[in-house]
């Protein structure tokens, strides 16, 4: 019996697979949401991980904590407004046992509720918990900070898990995506911290440790991004190939390469110069930090919009 020809061997899904379309649902607002939440939660984590106490104050509270809380709040607001049915948002808390969106929503609420309790006395003066729970040496405060820290860790990781679980969009379906989200959030948060402290004139005491942390973060994030690109290049599905092409050479290439340049390349150079140039050091670190924050947003936008799925129906 003659061997089958190529056309005879063609399977149903061979005809289906070539139809690739860019995903149309998660674009600008989602990029802003991922970025703001990662940055806000990351800034809170950086502030406590580096024990930064002298960061400037707003309403009697640590400026960095307030910045972090406001950013997470903005991210949460974008998340809610982007839902098809925003009034049903509380239903998103129903299935934390299986959905990363539910886990993330729960973490957002926990973070924001504790943060609001923290902020209210600053606005309304004496409240029953004004002094007791939020004196940082207090045990209650320590517990709440620990809970907030855990919630912040979930907040910076869960968007990456959400993308990873979108199995039809092969560009996102890499175990390195959650790692990348964590690295991006922490590095850009270090950048924001450097910027805020430099602008407030409070960078000098912690300049070296924050600067080294920022440099390590930049290099680690760049390394993870590089490994992620290699990982996707080794997945030989049409959707992965098309998505990677769109990210590196196609419609999103300008955004991607600009994000690499301003989010990593320039900040690395500026940070290295800052270690040598004493007088201009804080200014250089502030610029580098601000650029990494901007680059992080642009990277997330590029990665989301480069997502391509196999689907004739869009």
């Amino acid at each position: 019996m003659a061997k089958p020809t190529l056309i005879e061997r063609e399977r149903t899904y061979d005809r289906f697979a070539p139809h690739l379309v860019p995903q149309p649902h998660w674009r600008g607002p989602h990029a802003l949401w991922f970025w703001a939440m990662g940055l806000g939660a990351g800034t809170f984590m950086v502030r406590h991980a580096f024990s930064l106490t002298d960061t400037g104050t707003v309403l009697g509270l640590s400026l960095l904590d307030v910045v972090g809380l406001v950013l997470v709040g903005i991210g949460g607001l974008i998340l809610i407004l982007d839902l098809g049915r925003p009034e049903r948002v509380l239903k998103a808390l129903k299935r934390p046992d299986r959905s990363w969106i539910a886990r993330g929503a729960l973490a957002d609420f926990v973070f924001l509720i504790i943060g609001a309790l923290y902020l209210l006395p600053g606005w309304f003066g004496a409240l029953p918990w004004t002094d007791e729970p939020f004196l940082e040496a207090n045990l209650t405060a320590q517990v709440m900070i620990a809970i907030s820290f855990a919630a912040a860790a979930v907040i910076i990781a869960y968007p990456g898990m959400v993308l990873y679980e979108s199995i039809s969009i092969r560009l996102w379906h890499s175990a390195l995506v959650p790692a990348q989200f964590i690295a991006h959030a922490l590095t850009s948060s270090l950048g924001l911290t450097l910027f805020v402290l430099a602008v407030n004139g409070r960078l000098e005491d912690v300049r070296t440790e924050l600067g080294v942390g920022f440099l390590v973060g930049l290099v680690a994030t760049l390394g993870i991004t590089h490994m992620y690109v290699l990982d996707r290049a080794h997945e030989h599905t049409p959707a992965a190939r098309a998505g990677l092409h769109r990210l590196l050479r196609g419609g999103m290439a300008a955004h991607f390469w600009t994000s690499v340049l301003i989010g990593f390349g320039v900040p690395v150079v500026l940070t290295l110069i800052a270690f040598a140039a004493t007088a201009a050091g804080p200014a250089l670190l502030a610029i580098g930090g601000a650029l990494s924050v901007a680059g992080s947003l642009q990277f997330r936008y590029a990665q989301l919009c480069a997502g391509v799925k196999v689907s004739p129906l869009g």
Binding site: H25, G84, A92, G307
Partner: peptide, 9 residues
Amino acid sequence: IGCRSCIQA
């Protein structure tokens, strides 16, 4: 709630 994560998956 219209989060569209099912569409993406």
